[in-house]
Design a protein around this nucleic acid. Structure first.
Lengths: 141, 141
DNA sequence: GATGCATATTACGTTTACGTCAACGTAAGA
DNA sequence: TCTTACGTTGACGTAAACGTAATATGCATC
């Protein structure tokens, strides 16, 4: 893989990251990461005016990108990330939080179902292709 | 469920559908379905100028919407749907088709992984919530 | 035959999620 | 000191996927 050759010889996780560090690691762009900051999804500290990302910031980014791969909107991801921090929540908030969690889970269950069906379809499509290839150049009809 | 009460008493699948039939069944809008036609994803026949959807059209719509739930773009869905129709394909096309199939599968595998991780996170978040609720009104710290 | 409802077309508007300059600061090396 | 690389802040652009009128047509019904 050889993700970063400019890094010193440390196997341990660094305590902080630059914006390009994270972009290389997660294969995204600085514009994207800054956009997430613009809308308040990540709030890195600053050294001067340069952004400095903590391991926690990195985790947030990871979660956002995972959400993206699942087709979640950034607002969805914001909601989910907020779930991880109970924070100053009263009973009412906790209940609505549980509701939100269950909604997300229902959506994921549907997605699991969709994926399995699509995988089946793809498998069939592939074997059809392979069959067509084995029956050689009979392209017509 | 009671999806359509205006339908005659037929348990069998109708041979054709109106645009609102499909919209009700799949919980989408006429604008959306017409949009799919605009970009060539569905091509219903016409009676006069009214759209008439066949079971095959309905299936295409179902596949598109399934793709949407998985975060696929409409172009992704177009590609996948095209996979189901071997049609007039030469060997080169078949091979690139197989490549596309495997790419899609890789993406779905990643999604499965993401979903499982997110489900774990949600489970933890929920139990945390329930714990917080059981330890009653101790909202601070 | 006016009303109501489903359907149609046309066309501009909107939201999301960034892309893409431009213009500039700063620190490390050759 | 000059270049190179990485960083910053605007600010306008854009692609995708529809939303939202406005307007017109066809059919059934009261």
């Amino acid at each position: 893989m050889n993700v970063g050759r400019s890094m010193p010889n440390l196997a341990i996780t660094p305590a902080e990251f630059s914006i390009t560090d994270l972009c290389k690691e997660f294969e995204t762009t600085t514009r994207t990461v800054r956009h997430y900051e613009d809308i308040g999804l990540i709030s890195p500290s600053r050294r001067g005016q340069t952004r400095v990302y903590s391991p926690a910031d990195r985790t947030r980014l990871r979660l956002i990108l995972r959400g993206k791969r699942l087709g979640l909107s950034l607002e969805d991801s914001r909601q989910i990330i907020d779930m991880y921090e109970p924070g100053k929540t009263n009973i009412e908030q906790l209940n609505s939080l549980i509701g939100a969690i269950r909604q997300q889970r229902a959506k994921l269950d549907q997605q699991l179902d969709d994926i399995n069906n699509l995988l089946k379809d793809l498998n069939k499509a592939e074997t059809d292709c392979l069959k067509a290839l084995n029956s050689n150049g009979q392209t017509d009809l």
